[in-house]
């Protein structure tokens, strides 16, 4: 079998194989980002990639070419690898766009992977996004490589000459002051003409709360202690509030606390429809535990799982454990302020 493979690769039939492969590079659909729009443009009526024999096709098994279009996240990297492994030999990969090169606008993000670390890449096409001409040029370049066996860059860089006596451009100044420990106030009071809200506040003040503040029209911020959170939610449900719009966590490392917010509103009660109550509590950073409201408001469930992924806050009573949205190999709690990004390693002089 090895002899046969060797014969196919370099025997007398090799020129035929090279010719067939050269004129029949079929890219598989693997769109991850906005470069997909440029790919569509390159194969539509203006530029028509089918001229040079490239035809977009459905599945990995019957194609021989992947165009990685844009950013590859940790989850998508697995898909890319599977697609590449499903593809029969000989197969080729082209990466288009700045994101695939070195991250682009997502540079150094916790969730980003370079495609060249996942699969062997033949050519990179820089640009954000690259033009259709650039993409077709990349395919032509791959065809040339198949024909001659040598990869070469199609870009000519011109030499920069140092000019004496020219004043260097002024760089933009850095921001004047960066606060070491910014003050985060969730319930800043504001005077508004809102009679119904004041009425509602009076009702709420009867409960065991730390403070009730009107922050804007139709917005009320309610601060409770962690132990009272669940009871307050039950009381709010009795008032007519029936769902959680969002669950939010704010990390305040300077004061060593997390602020956990529940934005609660109503669909069933017409008067309460425009009202959003921000029910929030403060918990210590070390023992980040808060009781879950998922059994009272079912819509809070998924958002609590997400916050658990990002901040490591444990919601007591929510049965979910482990990663929900993030890929299994993502570093822990990426949205905490003290999260350290992986540093880029540069090799060179």
């Amino acid at each position: 079998m090895d002899d046969f493979t060797k014969f196919i690769h370099s025997g007398k039939l090799a020129p035929l194989k090279k010719w067939g492969t050269k004129w029949s590079l079929w890219p598989v659909h693997l769109v991850t980002a906005c470069c997909g729009a440029e790919l569509a443009h390159a194969f539509a009526s203006g530029y028509d990639g089918e001229r040079i024999g490239a035809l977009n096709y459905g599945i990995a098994r019957q194609t021989n070419f992947i165009i990685v279009e844009g950013a590859i996240t940790r989850k998508m990297a697995r898909v890319l690898r599977i697609t590449w492994e499903q593809m029969p030999d000989p197969k080729f990969v082209i990466v288009m766009g700045a994101c695939g090169l070195n991250g682009g606008i997502f540079w150094n993000g916790y969730n980003l992977v370079k495609p060249s670390e996942v699969v062997p890449v033949e050519f990179f096409i820089p640009g954000c996004p690259p033009t259709p001409e650039a993409l077709l040029r990349g395919i032509r370049q791959l065809q040339k490589k198949l024909e001659t066996g040598e990869a070469e860059s199609s870009v000519d860089f011109y030499d920069l000459r140092l000019q004496k006596g020219k004043i260097p451009k002024m760089l933009p100044k850095s921001p004047k002051r960066i606060s070491e420990n910014p003050l985060i106030i969730v319930n800043r009071a504001k005077e508004v003409d809102w009679a119904f809200g004041k009425e509602l506040c009076e009702k709420l003040k009867a409960l065991k709360l730390e403070s009730v503040v009107i922050t804007a029209k139709n917005r009320i911020a309610v601060k409770v202690s962690e132990s009272n959170l669940k009871e307050t939610a039950i009381e709010l449900k009795k008032l007519g509030f029936d769902h959680v719009k969002s669950v939010n966590v704010i990390d305040v490392p300077a004061e060593n606390k997390f602020i956990v917010e529940y934005h609660i509103s109503s669909y069933s009660n017409k008067d309460l429809m425009p009202v959003i109550v921000n029910l929030f509590t403060e918990i210590p950073r070390k023992e980040a535990k808060v009781s879950s409201l998922a059994d009272i408001f079912p819509s809070a469930d998924y958002m609590e799982r997400e916050m658990h992924d990002f901040f490591g806050v444990e919601f007591k009573g929510n049965p979910w454990k482990g990663k929900f949205l993030l890929a299994p190999d993502t570093p822990e709690f990426p949205l905490r302020k003290d999260f350290k990004l992986q540093e880029e390693i540069y090799v060179g002089d």
Binding site: I8, L13, L16, K17, W19, G20, T21, K22, W23, S24, G53, N64, P88, D89, P90
Partner: peptide, 9 residues
């Protein structure tokens, strides 16, 4: 060309 590519794949 497509046929030859399939043949050698």
């Amino acid at each position: 060309a497509d046929g030859l590519r399939y043949f050698f794949q």
